[in-house]
Design a protein around this nucleic acid. Structure first.
Lengths: 196, 196
DNA sequence: CGAGTGATTGACTTAGATCAATGACCGTGG
DNA sequence: CCACGGTCATTGATCTAAGTCAATCACTCG
């Protein structure tokens, strides 16, 4: 859901912009959460890194997406956000948003919808992670994200592997197999789903 | 978060109560979502079943918990809710709740907080599912849920296996090993965490 | 043009899934 | 009151898919 659909432009306009170079960290897990970010341009990877250094990609945020919505009600950020390209973000302070929600029930409701969509999406992802085989996960992912029969990968294949809870090697192999068997076709940054 | 903390008793009181026997289904995935349920007594299992018949337990709801909050903004339910004991629930119609949110910003904000907590919880669970070894997942689960050093299992060990994305056999074995090595102690329906 | 990273494929190992069997426990109906 | 059906709890044996280690090629960016 695009920010423009829920956050009044009066508020968006007055927010502070910040620019990051590729590779820079926007915030880290555990940092004091002062508000949320809106991506104006570029791509941001949200991830969590466990004690073994393994990275789980929570998602790639593109222009119009917001980051750390849930942290509005939490004292700290729960994941790490890293710019993967050059990025421009707008920062929205907690208090500003909460005040707006109190003043404007329509905005509040839109934000609720946003959170509800995230809950639904996360549950779908959890279901996907529960599938045992790599191929099933790929199918689940493609089925969920296919608009038409073509899926545009938001990031690299490696990122996708992280998002699917697989090693990149396992994913490459699975994609090759699926392509060999005519289930999918691959083009640069995209996957075409061939329901046989 | 308990319903009483966010939903005014005036609304809660006027809701329709419904009683289910153990094993009965409250709603199924795909059913038209007319509103949400509050558990008054008993336990309800929320789960998703994939195409292979494998069940992912999304959680066990106890008295005070609500079910299908996210479906407030969705036309259908995304998971299946089954009574695992005799259960009493209260049904709250979508329109009633949304109207209350519009009227009372405090209630709206509490509900947002509830959704935000769910997002955070789901992300934690996703992170857990991303851990490769059964033992790591158990540790992660215990660390997250330990109040003091004792964890009360909300359901059966089998339910827990579903929640951790493991087969029950694998979980039994892992728990035995951990007990053998003195990392945990097990008592009926509980696990004691022994940080060595 | 080199350094860094993604993409890709090979060989080997292992943890957990699967299949299978048994004992414990619980409600329930004759 | 007890036998029976059902489910949970538990353990064993085997198998396989994915993880791990490793190497190579392609591409992009200063």
């Amino acid at each position: 859901m695009d920010v423009k659909e829920w956050l009044p432009s009066s508020i968006r306009g007055s927010a502070i912009e910040r620019t990051l170079a590729a590779g820079q960290i926007l915030f880290s897990r555990g940092d004091h959460a002062a508000g949320l970010y809106e991506v104006v341009s570029g791509k941001v990877r949200r991830s969590r890194t466990d004690s073994d250094g393994r990275e789980l990609v929570l998602g790639i945020a593109c222009a119009g997406d917001t980051i750390a919505e849930a942290s509005l009600f939490s004292p700290i950020y729960h994941s790490t956000a890293t710019a993967i390209t050059k990025v421009v973000v707008r920062f929205h302070r907690k208090a500003t948003l909460l005040a707006e929600f109190a003043r404007n029930p329509r905005v509040a409701q839109s934000f609720m919808r946003l959170l509800a969509c995230q809950v639904i999406d996360l549950r779908a992802r959890l279901e996907r992670h529960n599938l045992r085989s790599a191929r099933e996960r790929v199918r689940h992912y493609l089925a969920a994200d296919a608009n038409g029969d073509i899926v545009v990968l938001p990031g690299t294949v490696k990122d996708l592997a992280g998002e699917l809870g697989l090693t990149h090697e396992a994913l490459y192999r699975t994609l090759s197999e699926m392509e060999g068997e005519g289930e999918i076709a691959r083009l640069k940054g995209k996957i075409r789903f061939l329901p046989h």
